[in-house]
């Protein structure tokens, strides 16, 4: 991908909220350690995790955009897009454990978070590799901008 800053921000909002949101709505039923919990209560937490992913993600994008300027091709390889799950996931987990994410209990089990975060990430990443371009054929020429 060859994002512009506006494109990064718009794409991040779109995939986190729409794709991540839809996926979260589906997967929250089957996440580990949710047996017996009312789905409404699970949603409350998983959707706050998605919201936190978005807020942090936008900050990360600023950093990535700065780093990208040091690449001659001014592209952001999908390889980076995939593996940045590690730094983003770790930071979010640390913040949750520090009780710094509003309304997400610091007792959130690691496996619940891991399965949720990793699958949201992969689904969003896969979405960007193909389906996104099919829905919005101009997206790839606009540096990821949707509007």
């Amino acid at each position: 991908m060859t994002p512009t800053l506006a494109g990064r921000i718009q794409t991040r909002i779109f995939v986190t909220l729409i794709i991540g949101g839809l996926w979260t709505a589906l997967i929250s039923f089957v996440l580990p350690n949710t047996d017996g919990a009312a789905i409404g209560d699970v949603y409350k937490i998983t959707f706050r995790v998605v919201a936190a992913m978005l807020v942090l993600g936008l900050l990360w994008e600023l950093l990535y955009h700065g780093l990208m300027q040091y690449r001659w091709e001014k592209d952001w390889p999908s390889f980076f897009g995939f593996w940045t799950a590690i730094n983003e996931g770790l930071l979010l987990w640390i913040l949750i454990k520090a009780d710094a994410v509003p309304d997400v209990p610091k007792e959130l089990p690691g496996s619940t978070f891991l399965v949720h975060f990793v699958t949201v990430w992969i689904v969003a990443w896969l979405w960007l590799q193909g389906p996104m371009k099919i829905v919005t054929p101009r997206w790839r020429y606009r540096g990821g901008r949707l509007v």
Binding site: M1, T2, T4, G7, E73, K74, G143
Partner: peptide, 17 residues
């Protein structure tokens, strides 16, 4: 050296802009 005949963002990124 570069991947393609123009730097890649020329097709649809910051360089195009």
């Amino acid at each position: 050296y570069q991947g393609f005949n123009f730097s890649r963002a020329g097709w649809g990124g910051t360089i195009k802009h």
